[in-house]
Design a protein around this nucleic acid. Structure first.
Lengths: 113, 113
DNA sequence: TTGATACTTAGGTATATGTCTAAGTATGAT
DNA sequence: ATCATACTTAGACATATACCTAAGTATCAA
């Protein structure tokens, strides 16, 4: 990844991995420790921790140390920029379709003169 | 990328790159040829084409050959699974039964600082 | 204080990704 | 027919990613 990462780069890239989406799906149901999260993933712990680091770098989760455990929590507002970007593209596209319909309409009117 | 790519893997991974998001933003305003799209990206054409291939593999765009040009079009419905996934996670989080308890917990922690 | 638990760090490997140059092929214009 | 245009293919390369094992460190429990 380049040094020009925007929030959306980190966020969408983080979401592009099934292990990480599963972690988020679990955390949407409530916070959990690293080992609780890791339990359902057949992967060495350091590998699993890398996924958590990426989620945290993307600000999709936060975590804090509590005793020897680390508790991970979903940051649900972090989804907002991604959702907004997606919605905006759809909206722009739909706006274009409307304009295209208008154009056809105009053509038809011209032709019938 | 593994051979177990789901649609969401491809879609979110494709969205995780700024060049590709810019392409989509341009196409939301209307279809365009490869060279029209490439014009605003300072990159060798084969490199640029790789991005288009990923967008097409993710079904975010379609393309067809017309003469010696290739015309690319946004597939706006392809955003839907991604948007739905994001919305679902937010909804689950918001619906958590113990969310109020967490809220109180956070308040208490803030107060004791 | 000793051992178990829960990460954490260090370092290694294989594959994927994002870029390039050079040399194609197919089509349009003259 | 010839030349320019618009991709397309082939191959190379550096960095990133996703995984691993082995060996730490910090807490907790007895």
């Amino acid at each position: 990844m380049s040094k020009y990462d925007s929030g959306l780069d980190l966020c969408f890239s983080a979401l592009g991995d099934p292990t990480r989406r599963k972690i988020l799906e679990r955390l949407a149901r409530g916070e959990a420790t690293v080992s609780e999260l890791a339990a359902t993933h057949d992967m060495a712990l350091p590998s699993f921790m890398e996924h958590l680091k990426k989620l945290e770098a993307a600000k999709l989760i936060t975590s804090k140390k509590q005793g020897r455990s680390r508790i991970c929590t979903l940051s649900p507002t972090a989804f907002t920029p991604a959702r907004d970007w997606l919605s905006e593209q759809s909206t722009i596209w739909e706006g274009r379709l409307d304009r295209f319909d208008d154009y056809i309409q105009t053509l038809m009117e011209e032709r019938s003169k």
